[in-house]
């Protein structure tokens, strides 16, 4: 076997991995030393999580989904309904320093993934704007159906589509932190693996020219469905833990606004890389805060303008921009992935 150098030293040479490890350790250290509030760290992880989940289908395969929040919502509702109605799962949540909550979130993610796989088989036949719009349609359909169904499940307790978990069915926030942290690490690993694998090469080929990719042997339909399902699964998990953290769920989890967050982070950071969404979500988090503090009220207007500038002048995002340059004769393209 040639060219297979899976040694530790090889990985240590990868700045991408170093950045990822740095970010992950950063979150952990900030948590242990209490440098940031739990809420701040949860928000960062949540941002990073949704961006990395959408990245699998939008960044790698080029399918821009404007309705990705649908999986956030489905995961959130699945989680809350599971612990609300299934007693053993409510108890499981509390076990193992967050491992229990993580497992229930996996179930919720699986629910989102099943929906993603089945609708994906259909909507992934559409391309470009048609796909983007079909996913918006999905999101709204799920939103309205949730509004219709949820009140019926427990008419005494649920008002509208809102479900508030009673105190005995939620867990401590630092337990949620652990579960989210674990999810994020897996999500990063999955993104990194995709980037490095034949699967990722195939997805990139699909992004560049789907017909040519198919003729060159890429099983385009299957790859797209797998990518979409993975993206749905992880969005579902993040939505689940986000809801648990908030002590319940309501229909705002389906808001187009969440899809907007994800897309903006990926666009700012750079499509098709692992670092893009990571860096993009950190920038977005800071930017969001900064604008909110200094320009309250008009903060989102400025954000829109910034996004427009990025789309027009830096369409590859920050990482994409850096990848064009060389430092001391070394092409950053080979280092930043």
């Amino acid at each position: 076997m040639t060219g297979k150098e899976s040694t530790l030293s090889h990985y240590l040479k990868s700045p991408t991995l170093i950045v990822i490890v740095f970010v992950v350790l950063g979150i952990l250290i900030a948590r242990i030393l209490g440098m940031s509030t739990l809420d701040t760290l949860m928000t960062i992880m949540y941002f990073m999580g949704i961006a990395l989940s959408l990245n699998i289908i939008m960044g790698f395969a080029g399918y821009v989904s404007f309705g990705h929040a649908v999986f956030l919502g489905l995961g959130g509702y699945a989680y809350v309904l599971l612990v609300y109605f299934v007693k053993p799962l409510a108890q499981l949540q509390n076990m193992g320093f967050g491992l229990g909550a993580f497992l229930v979130a996996v179930l919720a993610g699986l629910f989102a993934a099943v929906i993603a796989a089945s609708v994906g088989a259909a909507v992934l036949r559409l391309r470009g704007a048609f796909f983007a719009i079909a996913t918006i349609g999905l999101d709204f359909t799920a939103l309205y159906l949730m509004k219709a169904i949820v009140p019926e499940l427990n008419p005494e307790q649920f008002f509208g589509a809102q479900i508030i978990l009673p105190a005995d069915k939620i867990v401590e926030k630092d337990v949620v932190f652990n579960a989210m942290f674990l999810t994020l690490i897996i999500l990063l690993a999955v993104n990194y693996y995709i980037r490095k694998s034949p699967f990722g090469v195939g997805l990139t080929a699909i992004k560049e020219d789907e017909d040519a990719a198919e003729v060159l042997g890429v099983p385009t339909t299957m790859f797209k469905i797998i990518a979409f399902t993975l993206a749905g699964f992880f969005a579902g998990m993040v939505g689940a833990l986000f809801s648990l953290n908030g002590g319940g769920v309501d229909e705002t989890l389906f808001n187009l606004g969440h899809s907007i967050d994800m897309i903006v982070m990926i666009v700012i950071g750079g499509l098709g890389t692992v670092l893009g969404p990571v860096v993009g979500s950190l920038i977005y988090f800071e930017l969001y805060d900064l604008l909110l503090v200094h320009y309250p009220g008009v903060n989102l207007i400025i954000l829109g303008i910034i996004v427009a500038i990025v789309v027009l002048f830096f369409p590859e995002g920050l990482i994409g921009l850096l990848r064009k340059y060389k430092v001391k004769g070394v092409r950053l393209r080979d280092l930043l992935e």
């Binding site: 297979k4 694998s197 080929a205 042997g217």
Partner: peptide, 16 residues
């Protein structure tokens, strides 16, 4: 892309 998904798809590494 040609090599990875051609005759020997799924049998070769990125390096190969």
């Amino acid at each position: 892309v040609g090599a990875l998904f051609g005759k020997r798809a799924h049998q070769i590494t990125i390096g190969e």
